[in-house]
Design a protein around this nucleic acid. Structure first.
Length: 937
RNA sequence: GCGGGGGUUGCCAAGUGGUUAAAGGCGCAGGGCUUAGGACCCUGUCACGAAGGUGUUCGCGGGUUCGACUCCCGUCCUCCGCACCA
């Protein structure tokens, strides 16, 4: 039922094909016009274009159409992102016949027969771009499709461009080599981000320390987040059931859990296994705490997990609830835990941190207080967190910590760590605080990726210049500026290469693939020339010197042209195109991209281009909601552009989105609005066609009013369009205008010239939002060419007339008042409304009072001879002025009412008499400026 | 926890010291037009009402002010981000 009618669809397709045929969105250099270059972050091609994309895109689209109508030469290109792992991983899952992945495709409308095609990642990169392009064409987007492309090595010219970009970055010192810890799946041999996880979202590698205990010349390493507590170790824990190994680690001999071997190797340790042993074989032995020199027995504990840390845990019962609970278990029931009672009896908790609100042994206190009975109690987790937090933030180290005594824990930690590491008592080790499971079901570990390449976003000088770029930009809305500034400061080095995935290989180290957020930072420049590079007929060989010439203006054009197999003319033309279009004027995305893509975009422009080519404007918006709820696949309210378009058609989809919201708030797709707005547009079309060229020629009062409010609305609309506040623009330029029109018609206004102007104005204002139906109107009205290229409305300040608008408001208020009186007083048989406007002297008082205080005002008023005569009446009026805060601008109320008399009479169904002498209830007395008194009889 | 947005009358939302019971849209109700209407037009939509009035509202609690949705303090809730990922 809500499905758009066939004729509408037909109409929209008609205009889309006219636009395509006339190539009006294919932007070419035109020196006579100012350019305006808008763009949109290319979407990732693992699915259809969805409604969230569409909202962000529509902001670009509406802005593009608006600027085009204002006479700018607008470039709006579009491309498709294929870099990274999701496509390749999904294709692999299809190849493996994974049901979940097949279902995802089927839900998108892919048929069973087509599914096998998707086992090839390359198929994705041709299928989805094609689909997205069609969807956007169906939406009526004013895109120059000649410039489209896909990313990755599948597209050699783009591949060459990215290689060029990275060589430039390297030359500039922006790419550095280093290492860093990542969450790693050894089966996939790749880092596993949140998207690729079944479990453990948000978990990142955390720094822990392996504290080394001496065990007869061998090392027993224990992992801890709290190296400072090694001063309070009473014993070690091992899991008697677990498997351990004795192994050569770097140049020492360690005993560690079997699981630890792989983890150590992943963190750049050399590990050679000598023998395997059970945990129980160590139980009862003693080792030496290298920090304190004290002895620590090795005790068994079931809470020790062999796949966490080293499988050996140092016990600090005074400050670690787990340790105390386990110690208590062992002491109370030594046989059960396989230890001799003499071994455990002698163990005394050692306090080393003073914490406000606790005694010497916080862990003991909390365990007892919570009534935790044994080491298997799940509440130990919470108790541990609580104690850790308290001790870290408020704890002070005891005298038994030697030179660290008296320091706060958080102050001492760094010192302790560096001292211990320097004295070979501890080693840094990354661990995951929670289990992370890769989508392939493998448990992830931390790997230190070495040989890794980074974009050096930590560079202070680079940050400074990026701030400078930001300072010179227009942000839509400006509110995001703080967030941008924050992000620029916060960004650290970004690992810009991957071992796996689609993309461009790092030119000087081909085993690496450039990571997907790093190959998408300055490609907007590539749009300037993509149509030549992407077209094989030109046969251009995209060398570095070619890009240097086009983007940097360096090199000898004849030599460059020869090397690139291109004519000098075309080469110069490409350079000219870049110089003409760049920098871009507006790029828009969702607010989630501020902290990565958009910030990277700024950084990289700053690194590669002179100031003149730094971005001019960036827009950011919230996330689409569907009838007030977040759009998500799991909620079942996830919509692709295609689904929405099929239901509502292009114009309704566009208008509903743009009326859904603006600024940083989440815009809302209002289904009820979408259902109702189509017929309103058709109504406008019918009205326009029916009324254009009709009407009287004389100018009446109400015509001047109509002209005034319309000009005022145009002015407001222009401001809103300029700041991309499209929702408010529609409010002013469409809904307000329609209200004015209704009132005008009700007031029997129908001046031909004015009405024609209004019809064109309204249609043009709507055109960026609903271009199809506006083209239709434009054509039928005999407009020249396309409305898409027609001039945007302008306003005439001289036509804006405050007084006339106030007068109309005044008259309208009178109608409302009369109606209200009729209703409340239940007057059925009234025939005449007597309206008494305020007498002159009241206006005079108003004038004299101005903005004076009540005392001065009274004094001054009474100095007037005429007023003093009225004494009491005047003083009462003055008092009332203050109590009711009366302030009205002068207006000839009588004239206004007399002019609108017929209308008012029609509206209220009474004869109207203005300022008649007849005043049986002495109502005139009550009139005040702006508020005539009324008597109905 | 840190940084940044928000919390307004059924819903979406405008409003940053007084002309605000608070724009507009949607929804809802009544009336008109009409064979009919989910199309269109008008009216109403916090409560009450005695001639155009009065009362109570803008997450919650305080404060400043003649006066606060609007300024200050506190508090609760919510959205986005906190990375190696699109």
């Amino acid at each position: 039922m809500n499905r758009q009618s066939f004729s509408n669809r037909h109409m929209e397709e008609k205009w889309q094909s006219y636009w395509a045929k006339s190539r009006i969105f294919e932007a070419e250099i035109d020196a006579s016009k100012k350019k305006f270059f808008v763009n949109f972050p290319y979407p990732y091609m693992n699915g259809y274009f969805h409604l969230g994309h569409t909202f962000s895109l529509m902001r670009v689209e509406v802005f593009a159409r608006y600027k085009r109508m204002q006479g700018y030469n607008v470039l709006f290109p579009f491309a498709f992102h294929c870099t990274g792992t999701p496509i390749i991983a999904a294709a692999q899952r299809i190849a493996e016949n994974e049901k979940a992945q097949i279902d995802i495709l089927k839900q998108m409308g892919i048929t069973t027969e087509e599914v096998p095609n998707f086992s090839d990642p390359i198929y994705w990169t041709s299928f989805f771009p094609k689909e997205a392009m069609q969807d956007l064409k169906n939406l009526g987007a004013s895109i120059d499709w000649r410039r489209s492309f896909i990313t990755t090595s599948l597209n050699p010219p783009y591949d060459a461009f990215i290689k060029w970009q990275f060589r430039k970055l390297k030359e500039g010192g922006y790419v550095i080599k280093g290492e860093h810890p990542v969450v790693w799946c050894s089966k996939c041999s790749s880092p596993v981000g949140d998207h690729g996880r079944l479990e453990g979202e948000g978990t990142t590698p955390e720094e822990t320390y392996l504290i080394k205990f001496d065990f007869n010349g061998k090392v027993l390493p224990t992992a801890t987040y709290r190296p400072e507590t090694s001063f309070g170790v009473t014993n070690l824990w091992v899991n008697p059931e677990a498997g351990y190994v004795e192994a050569g680690v770097d140049n020492e001999r360690w005993i560690i859990s079997e699981d630890m071997v792989e983890k150590l190797r992943a963190q750049k340790h050399v590990v050679e296994i000598f023998r395997h042993l059970k945990g129980e074989s160590m139980v009862g032995e003693r080792c030496t705490n290298k920090v304190t020199g004290g002895q620590a027995p090795i005790l068994p504990a079931t809470f020790v997990k062999s796949d966490t840390g080293t499988g050996i845990v140092m016990s600090v019962p005074s400050h670690a609830p787990y340790d105390y609970a386990a110690l208590k278990d062992a002491q109370e029931n030594p046989r059960k835990y396989g230890v001799t009672s003499t071994l455990v009896e002698e163990i005394e908790p050692i306090s080393l941190i003073k914490v406000p609100g606790y005694g010497a042994h916080p862990a003991i206190e909390i365990v007892e207080k919570m009534g935790i009975a044994c080491q298997e109690d799940p509440r130990l987790e919470g108790a541990t967190k609580e104690i850790y937090k308290k001790e870290f933030h408020t704890g002070i180290l005891n005298e038994n910590t030697g030179k660290y005594a008296g320091l706060k824990v958080f102050e001492a930690k760094e010192k302790i760590v560096s001292d211990f590491m320097g004295e070979n008592k501890a080693v840094l080790f990354y661990e995951l605080s929670e289990e992370v499971i890769c989508r392939c079901l493998t448990k992830c570990i931390v790997k230190i990726v070495s040989d890794q390449w980074f974009l050096k976003y930590s560079d202070e000088e680079w940050k400074k210049r990026t701030h400078e770029a930001l300072d010179n930009m227009i942000l839509y809305p400006d509110k995001v500026r703080r967030q941008f500034d924050y992000v620029i400061d916060w960004l650290k080095d970004w690992a810009c290469t991957r071992e796996f995935g689609l993309g461009t290989t790092l030119p000087w180290d081909e085993k690496w693939v450039i990571e997907s957020l790093s190959d998408s930072t300055v490609y907007m420049a590539y749009y300037a020339i993509s149509r030549y590079l992407e077209d094989e007929r030109y046969g251009i060989e995209a060398t570095d010197s070619f890009f240097d010439y086009v983007f940097m203006g360096v090199g000898n054009d004849e030599k460059v042209a020869r090397d690139a197999h291109v004519s000098v003319e075309l080469l110069r033309k490409m350079r000219a195109e870049f110089e003409y279009w760049y920098p871009f004027d507006f790029r828009n995305s969702g607010k989630d991209l501020v902290q990565n893509h958009l910030a990277f975009c700024l950084f990289n422009h700053v690194a590669l281009f002179p100031k003149a080519y730094w971005p001019l404007g960036i827009g950011v918006n919230g996330f689409i909601q569907i009838d007030g709820f977040k759009m998500s696949k799991s909620k079942g309210n996830f919509y692709t552009l295609r689904q929405i378009h099929d239901t509502y058609g292009a114009d309704v989809t566009r208008l509903t989105l743009m009326y859904g919201g603006e600024g940083l708030d989440d815009p809302n797709w209002d289904t009820e609005f979408a259902k109702s707005i189509g017929s309103k547009l058709e109504q406008w079309r019918d009205f326009a066609l029916e009324n254009y060229g009709k009407g009287r020629t004389d100018i009446k009062y109400i015509d001047r009013w109509f002209s005034s409010v319309t000009n005022r609305a145009i002015k407001a609309t222009l401001e809103m369009m300029d700041s991309t506040e499209f929702r408010t623009a529609l409010q002013r330029g469409y809904f307000d205008l329609q209200r004015y029109l209704r009132w005008y018609l009700r007031r029997a206004g129908q001046n031909r010239e004015l009405m024609d102007w209004f019809i064109l104005t309204q249609t043009k204002i709507l055109a960026p939002f609903v271009p199809h139906i506006c083209e239709e109107i434009w054509e039928k009205l005999g407009g020249e060419g396309f409305i898409s290229l027609a001039g945007y409305p302008t306003y005439d300040e001289d036509k804006i007339d405050d007084e006339i608008e106030r007068g109309e408001e005044f008259a309208k208020g009178i109608i409302d008042d009369v109606k209200e009186i009729l209703g409340i007083a239940k007057i059925r048989d009234g025939s005449t409304a007597y309206i008494y406007t305020a007498e002159d002297w009241k206006w005079k008082v108003l004038e004299i009072v101005g903005d004076k205080g009540i005392g001065d005002a009274m004094k001054e008023v009474m100095q007037e001879e005429n007023l003093r005569k009225r004494g009491k009446e005047v003083s009462e009026f003055v008092k009332r002025m203050f109590s009711d805060r009366i302030s009205v601008q002068r207006m000839n109320e009588g004239d206004v009412l007399r002019d609108a008399k017929d209308f008012i009479e029609g509206e209220v169904g009474l004869t109207v008499k203005v300022d008649a002498d007849y005043d049986p209830q002495n109502k005139r007395r009550l009139s005040i400026p702006g508020r005539p008194s009324i008597y109905i009889a």
